[in-house]
Design a protein around this nucleic acid. Structure first.
Lengths: 131, 131
DNA sequence: TTCATATACAACCATTTGGTTGCATATTAT
DNA sequence: ATAATATGCAACCAAATGGTTGTATATGAA
């Protein structure tokens, strides 16, 4: 697989690419089945050029790849990049869980540090997600 | 936990919020330890107002929460939302893996459908990630 | 060759983004 | 009361985004 380390701007591009419902739908679609750009464009209520741009954004982010097939460009999903950002988010979760454990320890020592244990309004959520 | 279904624009906001290295760093930081806005601002080479805006973007996306603590606003991470988009990406991966299995089946039937089995250039990646 | 299809791409436009500075307000410290 | 700290927020600006229309090019079909 060899997912070499990505730069900040590469990660930026991936998240930004996913920050649009049409593009998320395109990713979902091509993960199910490869499709040409015009095939994709049929599905959305916007111009062909607009869909073409969306695909270009996804391609620039490395989330999809295009390959010529006669006069068509076949769009297919790129699992590696999707897996990468999913891992990044897993890291966030792991950090939080780790901290939740530490907080459980701190509760026994009581608050002697500067860290505010329980903010007023909604309070610090210590919930640990379960699948 | 009760993560009610999110709208497209809510998911948009979450991904867009993460599409900036400074904001990802803020999330990472407050997941490790709560911090006031000014405490966060010290770390970055930009104005206080800029960091304040970044926090506002994260808050609007539901990725962090703020709570008054005296004259400070304490920023803390919101696990539920992070977990949600991580799940969304897991879904993408699951779809792809499912399809990879189907493709293995199709290889026995050979290509009778319109689906192009192997694009020319980089080829369809059938790699399945392993941790 | 000629026509239709699929894509590429440029120019344009309104809105959003990510930064700035400046000023107002709230809270704590002296 | 006054000063210092922490934040909120408005106005401004350059660049990027997400859409449009129009035109050009490449490929397959008749």
């Amino acid at each position: 697989m060899v997912v070499y380390e990505l730069t900040d701007s590469e990660v930026d591009a991936m998240f930004r690419a996913l920050a649009d419902a049409t593009r998320r739908d395109i990713v979902d679609r091509v993960l199910h089945e490869n499709a040409s750009v015009s095939r994709l464009a049929e599905r959305y209520d916007m111009s062909f050029a607009a869909v073409q741009k969306h695909v270009a954004v996804l391609q620039a982010a490395g989330l999809v790849t295009k390959s010529r097939q006669g006069r068509e460009q076949i769009v297919s999903g790129n699992l590696a990049s999707i897996h990468h950002i999913q891992k990044l988010l897993s890291h966030f979760e792991a950090v939080w869980k780790q901290r939740a454990l530490q907080m459980a320890d701190v509760l026994r020592d009581d608050a002697t540090t500067e860290a505010p244990p329980s903010p007023t309004s909604s309070g610090t959520r210590v919930d640990i997600p379960h699948d």
